Deep mutational scan, measured.
Amino acid sequence: NQASVVANTLIPINTALTLVMMRSEVVTPVGIPAEDIPRLVSMTVNRAVPLGTTLMPDMVKGYA
């Protein structure tokens, strides 16, 4: 099973992502692959992402 990116904290809308905000976890449904974490750093989220939420491609500006 592939690990996905999961919010390690509440990420407010329009926040630039940092490494400490994200962790990898095997979850269903599958979200952004964990190997993309380095690429996500400094990208911003377009909605509030609660703790434990899987990051989906449409949640990160410029990812999809």
Rank of each mutant, 00 (worst) to 15 (best):
N1T: 15
N1I: 15
N1H: 10
N1K: 05
Q2T: 12
Q2L: 14
Q2K: 05
Q2N: 13
Q2E: 15
A3H: 14
A3N: 06
A3I: 08
A3F: 11
A3S: 13
A3L: 11
A3P: 09
S4Y: 03
S4R: 01
S4E: 01
S4L: 02
S4W: 03
S4C: 04
S4P: 01
S4T: 04
V5F: 02
V5E: 00
V5M: 02
V5I: 14
V5R: 01
V5K: 02
V6H: 00
V6Q: 03
V6E: 01
V6M: 05
V6G: 01
V6S: 02
V6C: 05
V6F: 02
A7K: 02
A7V: 08
A7F: 02
A7L: 03
A7I: 04
N8W: 04
N8G: 08
N8M: 11
N8T: 10
N8I: 05
T9I: 15
T9Y: 12
T9N: 09
L10C: 15
L10M: 14
L10P: 15
L10N: 08
L10D: 11
L10Y: 12
I11F: 02
I11T: 00
I11H: 01
I11N: 02
I11K: 00
I11Y: 00
P12H: 12
P12A: 11
P12L: 11
I13E: 15
I13N: 14
I13G: 09
I13L: 12
I13K: 09
I13W: 07
I13F: 15
N14E: 09
N14P: 00
N14Y: 14
N14H: 15
N14A: 11
N14M: 14
N14S: 10
N14R: 08
N14F: 12
N14V: 03
N14C: 15
T15D: 03
T15R: 06
T15W: 09
T15E: 10
A16Y: 14
A16L: 07
A16N: 06
A16V: 14
A16G: 09
L17E: 00
L17Y: 01
L17T: 00
L17C: 02
L17I: 13
L17A: 00
L17S: 00
L17V: 04
L17R: 00
L17K: 00
T18E: 06
T18A: 09
T18Q: 06
T18W: 03
T18K: 06
T18L: 07
T18R: 09
T18D: 05
L19E: 04
L19C: 13
L19V: 10
L19K: 06
L19Y: 12
L19A: 07
L19N: 06
L19S: 06
L19W: 13
V20K: 12
V20W: 13
V20E: 11
V20Y: 14
V20Q: 15
V20S: 12
V20C: 08
V20R: 14
M21G: 03
M21H: 11
M21Q: 05
M21R: 04
M21E: 03
M21A: 05
M21S: 07
M21I: 03
M21F: 05
M22N: 00
M22K: 00
M22F: 06
M22Q: 00
M22R: 00
M22Y: 02
R23Q: 04
R23D: 03
R23K: 13
R23F: 03
R23T: 06
S24A: 13
S24E: 13
S24L: 08
S24Y: 14
S24T: 12
S24D: 07
S24H: 13
E25T: 08
E25H: 09
E25L: 06
E25Y: 08
E25I: 05
E25M: 07
V26T: 10
V26M: 09
V26F: 09
V26G: 05
V26Q: 12
V26K: 05
V27I: 14
V27L: 05
V27S: 04
V27C: 05
V27N: 03
V27T: 12
T28V: 14
T28Q: 08
T28R: 03
T28S: 14
T28G: 05
T28K: 04
P29N: 05
P29T: 04
P29W: 03
P29K: 05
P29V: 06
P29I: 06
P29M: 04
P29L: 06
P29A: 04
P29F: 04
P29H: 04
V30S: 13
V30I: 13
V30H: 10
V30K: 06
V30F: 12
V30C: 06
V30E: 15
V30P: 11
G31L: 02
G31S: 02
G31H: 02
G31E: 01
G31Q: 01
G31Y: 02
G31T: 01
I32C: 04
I32S: 01
I32L: 08
I32P: 01
I32A: 02
I32H: 00
I32R: 00
I32W: 02
P33L: 08
P33T: 10
P33M: 09
P33Q: 09
A34S: 13
A34D: 08
A34N: 05
A34V: 09
A34E: 10
A34H: 07
E35W: 08
E35R: 05
E35I: 13
E35L: 09
E35D: 10
E35S: 10
E35P: 09
D36Y: 09
D36E: 11
D36C: 06
D36H: 12
D36P: 00
I37R: 08
I37T: 15
I37F: 03
I37C: 05
I37D: 00
I37H: 02
I37P: 00
I37M: 14
I37Y: 03
I37G: 04
P38I: 09
P38N: 10
P38F: 14
P38S: 10
P38H: 10
P38M: 09
P38K: 11
R39Q: 07
R39N: 05
R39G: 06
R39K: 09
R39L: 09
R39D: 04
R39W: 07
R39S: 10
R39F: 10
L40M: 06
L40V: 07
L40K: 00
L40G: 00
L40T: 00
L40I: 14
L40Y: 02
L40S: 00
L40N: 00
L40D: 00
L40R: 00
V41F: 06
S42M: 15
S42W: 10
S42Q: 10
S42P: 00
S42E: 07
S42F: 13
S42D: 06
S42R: 11
S42N: 14
M43N: 04
M43D: 03
M43Y: 09
M43G: 03
M43K: 08
T44V: 12
T44A: 08
T44F: 09
T44K: 08
T44L: 13
T44W: 12
T44C: 11
V45Q: 01
V45H: 00
V45A: 04
V45G: 00
V45C: 05
N46C: 08
N46S: 15
N46W: 08
N46Q: 09
N46M: 15
N46Y: 11
N46F: 13
N46K: 10
R47Q: 12
R47T: 14
R47C: 07
R47V: 06
R47E: 06
R47I: 07
A48D: 14
A48P: 14
A48G: 15
A48M: 12
A48V: 15
A48I: 11
V49Q: 02
V49T: 05
V49L: 11
V49E: 01
V49G: 01
P50H: 15
P50K: 12
P50V: 07
P50E: 13
P50C: 08
P50S: 09
L51C: 14
L51H: 13
L51V: 12
L51M: 14
L51K: 08
L51E: 13
L51T: 12
L51I: 13
L51F: 11
L51P: 12
L51Q: 12
G52A: 09
G52L: 04
G52C: 04
G52W: 04
G52T: 02
G52M: 05
T53R: 14
T53A: 12
T53E: 11
T53Y: 10
T53P: 01
T53K: 09
T54C: 04
T54S: 04
T54E: 01
T54D: 00
T54Q: 03
L55P: 00
L55D: 02
L55M: 13
M56K: 10
M56N: 07
M56L: 13
M56Y: 10
M56H: 07
M56D: 05
P57C: 06
P57K: 08
P57I: 05
P57N: 08
D58L: 09
D58S: 12
D58Q: 09
M59V: 13
M59I: 05
M59P: 02
M59R: 03
V60A: 01
V60N: 02
V60D: 02
V60F: 07
V60Q: 01
K61S: 13
K61G: 07
K61M: 14
K61W: 14
K61L: 09
G62N: 11
G62M: 10
G62W: 08
G62I: 04
Y63F: 10
Y63W: 12
Y63M: 05
Y63R: 03
A64L: 10
A64I: 12
A64W: 04
A64R: 10
A64T: 14
A64M: 15
A64F: 04
